[in-house]
Design a protein around this nucleic acid. Structure first.
Lengths: 162, 162
DNA sequence: TATTGTTATACTCTATAACTATA
DNA sequence: TATAGTTATAGAGTATAACAATA
């Protein structure tokens, strides 16, 4: 991915040798490594998805983010507070309806987003180092099939879901 | 797996469409589903790995578990406290060296372990529902290759690692 | 002194519910 | 009344460090 996983919280495990266990194990590992990488840019994995969503559709409200991510609005407050404090995101009042905010990336926010694309590439190459190009595509295709069948929303990490 | 993942804690995400992101996304989903299933048996995903390790090598000390899981000893205290309170694990003093405990599953603990094997099978079939047998093996082989190259310990979920 | 396990404490993440301002 | 956002609070999970018992 260009930006992606995170860490987890609880502990998932542990029967030695099943496809589902391997998925969880390797997935958690990839998330942890991604967290290390983006951490060097000063953001948490949970910030990454938010930044990306704001970058793709500037002017979004906090409610729309909460809805799409599947988290409670108060959590978005906390996340946006952090991004605003770091100077990556800006809250602008909407003169038409002053109840909601329109969210935008700052210049610094855009710079960080660009950095995250590099991080994503490096991360992808790191995690897939054992596989050649054909195998990577094969793996992606199999994972995609599982993701679709399981009803996962493209680009939305379950780490957000309530 | 026979028993496996868990939930996570933080948020990992979110670049739309990379193999590494898919791994994290599907892995976290598998972990969350596994947590739901074992939750019905009254245990948390973090309990599962511990129970399994005790079942495979009865009489182990808490220190040895901490070392293998890569967690701090005080966390093992908390986990074993919970399992003991639920009547799944027993602490026995070692008369030779009364500093450490030897851990054993109770009968109820063994029953739960048996239940977890069924849970693992159901979970595996659920997660891999989109794939036929050949594809499942293909996916497992690719994941195994990644796991080995990334230095993951077989059967040990990164959710424990400090 | 070194080792095993425990306790006390604190920190992070996240949800719930009550609240403010605006509509 | 209804909606966007905020605050206050609480709970889960986990780490650190000091501690007790035993060796």
């Amino acid at each position: 991915m260009t930006t992606e996983e995170h860490d987890s919280g609880t502990a998932p495990w542990s029967k030695p040798r099943g496809t589902a266990f391997l998925l969880s194990q390797v997935g958690a590992h990839a998330a942890a490594r991604f967290a290390e990488r983006v951490g060097a840019l000063g953001v948490a994995p949970s910030d990454v998805g938010l930044l990306r969503m704001i970058a793709m559709r500037p002017g979004r409200s906090q409610q729309s983010l909460a809805g799409e991510l599947g988290v409670v609005p108060s959590r978005v407050v906390t996340l946006v507070d952090g991004l605003e404090r770091k100077g990556l995101v800006e809250r602008r009042r909407n003169p038409q309806d002053r109840r909601n905010y329109a969210l935008y990336l700052t210049e610094e926010g855009s710079r960080v987003m660009a950095g995250m694309r590099e991080v994503g590439t490096a991360h992808e190459n790191d995690i897939c180092a054992a596989l050649d190009e054909a195998q990577r595509e094969q793996l992606a295709a199999l994972l995609e099939a599982v993701a679709v069948q399981q009803g996962l929303t493209p680009g939305v990490h379950p780490g957000y879901r309530r």
